[in-house]
Simulated assay, not measured.
Amino acid sequence: MRMLISVMSLAMLAGCVSPAMDTARSQAPTRVLASEKATALVAECIKFSWQDESVFGVDASAYINNDKAGKQTVYTRGAESFADLTPQGTGTAVSYYAQQPGDAAAMRRLAMLATCL
């Protein structure tokens, strides 16, 4: 039962942030990066680093969404920052989006993302 509630909560959260992500994707990404690592490894690393409470405080949240084509999105609550990860050969192409690109938290998230490449 507890697992069902968690899954339903996560699904509702994903539905709420999707319009914000679609709006952001209609513009150029804040930064485009590449990695030689597999997409799943990069996604897990970004999620883990964005959940670091010592860096982001109580707002240290991160989630992963997978689509059928192998693309993954790592995003924060409210999609204030998110990264689209697309498999590219044996590596990964990363598009980072931030609602407030010059914001200190957005810059920290970008720096944490860069350590995962």
Rank of each mutant, 00 (worst) to 15 (best):
P87H: 12
T92R: 01
A79S: 08
D84Q: 12
Q72C: 11
D67G: 03
F82M: 03
A79H: 11
V94T: 00
T92A: 05
F82W: 14
P87N: 15
V94R: 00
D67Y: 10
E80D: 10
R77H: 11
N65D: 13
R77Y: 10
A79Y: 03
G78E: 00
Y97Q: 10
E80K: 14
K68M: 12
G78K: 05
E80V: 09
A69N: 12
G89Q: 10
T90E: 15
Y75P: 01
T73Q: 12
S95P: 02
K71S: 11
P101D: 02
V58M: 09
Y63K: 04
V74H: 08
A83Y: 02
A93S: 15
Q88H: 14
T92S: 14
Q99P: 06
G89R: 07
N66A: 14
Y63F: 15
S61W: 10
A69F: 05
A79Q: 02
A60W: 09
Q100H: 15
A93P: 00
V94A: 07
A98R: 10
P101I: 04
Q99S: 10
A69G: 07
N66Y: 09
Y97V: 00
F82Y: 13
V58N: 06
Y97T: 00
K71D: 00
A93C: 04
T90V: 12
S61C: 01
K71T: 13
K68E: 10
A60K: 10
D67I: 08
Q100A: 12
T86D: 04
T90W: 08
T73V: 14
K68R: 13
P101Y: 05
N66Q: 13
A98D: 02
A60Y: 07
T73Y: 01
T76L: 02
A98L: 08
A69Y: 04
G78Y: 01
S81T: 11
Y63A: 11
Q72I: 06
G91F: 06
E80P: 02
Q99C: 01
P87V: 07
A93V: 05
V74C: 11
A62Y: 05
Y75E: 05
A69I: 08
T92P: 07
Y96V: 03
Y97I: 00
G70F: 06
R77F: 14
L85T: 09
A60G: 05
R77Q: 07
D84V: 15
T90N: 15
P101V: 05
R77P: 01
Q88E: 15
V74M: 03
S81E: 14
N66D: 12
D67N: 15
A98M: 06
Q72G: 08
L85A: 06
Q99E: 06
T86V: 15
V94H: 00
V74A: 10
T90C: 00
S61Q: 05
G70D: 07
R77I: 01
F82G: 01
Q99D: 10
S61N: 08
T73F: 04
P101R: 07
G91L: 03
D59L: 08
D59Y: 13
Q72Y: 03
V58C: 00
T90G: 09
T73I: 15
A69T: 15
D67Q: 11
A93E: 03
Y97R: 01
